[in-house]
């Protein structure tokens, strides 16, 4: 079966700065994969190119065998690292918005998660705290039956208690043959749910391996290993 993500010689520059440098990467289906690296390593740039929000300078990325476009947007459910919801809209209006545009959106799942988090559907987004807005976004994204979930720093801006809810939500709501690509630098929090990790530094992939393989070969946790690899 075609890998869900294929990157071939993917390069992106900003002026003279190289953000991504000749990335070659295949991500298989049905895996939870951590995209790990320090700030400024190129994680978000790689994710934006996969989502068609940035154009690569060279090389290509294929999602399920095709270049980013309308078809790949049906396959990908994307959570950016910023709030992208219209502040004037109510939560229920955003739910309807997602249902209008994504045929794989499950409204019952969204309302179930909103109820569990005690988020009022009639509340306007501008009246919610930053953390609650992030939870609403995550609920919307995880209420889709997508082939690929790309989550950019989903736990960076929330308290530790909410992190557990978010990780639980992610694990409980994705389809078993779907792939989750989760970008973060808070590795200790996510390590237990990851099948694979991709280490990225200065725009280059320096490691792509299974988490069990790392623990077995290195004799330490992925978090400890990450700290050693990226020690300043």
């Amino acid at each position: 079966m075609t890998p869900i993500v294929q990157c071939r010689g993917l390069t992106r520059t900003y002026g003279r700065k190289i953000a991504l440098n000749q990335i070659n990467l295949n991500l298989e289906r049905g895996r939870i994969i951590g995209l790990l690296g320090p700030n400024g390593s190129g994680k978000t740039t790689l994710i934006k190119i996969m989502n068609g929000l940035l154009v690569p300078t060279a090389g290509e990325v294929l999602i399920g065998g095709i270049s980013p476009g309308i078809e790949t947007k049906y396959k990908i459910s994307y959570l950016p690292e910023r709030t992208y919801l219209h502040p004037g809209m109510r939560v229920e209006e955003m739910v309807r918005y997602f249902q209008d545009f994504y045929p794989d959106f499950r409204m019952d799942r969204a309302y179930d998660m909103l109820a569990r988090l005690q988020i009022m559907p009639g509340e306007r987004l501008k009246n919610l705290s930053k953390g609650t807005k992030e939870k609403v976004q995550l609920i919307l994204v995880m209420s889709r039956d997508a082939d690929l979930y790309i989550l950019d720093e989903p736990i960076a801006g929330v308290d530790p208690a909410s992190r557990d809810f978010i990780l639980h939500t992610i694990v409980q709501n994705y389809r078993r043959n779907a792939t989750i690509l989760l970008s973060t630098h808070l590795i200790a929090d996510v390590e237990n749910i990851l099948d694979e990790v991709v280490f990225i530094r200065y725009g280059s992939i320096i490691l792509h391996a299974g988490t069990e393989q790392i623990r077995r070969n290195e004799g330490k946790s992925v978090d400890r290993f990450f700290r050693e690899v990226f020690a300043c």
Partner: peptide, 13 residues
């Protein structure tokens, strides 16, 4: 702007 992240990831022409 920020809302463009949603608009440009919608499956629309």
């Amino acid at each position: 702007g920020d809302q463009g992240y949603l608009l440009h990831t919608l499956p629309v022409d």
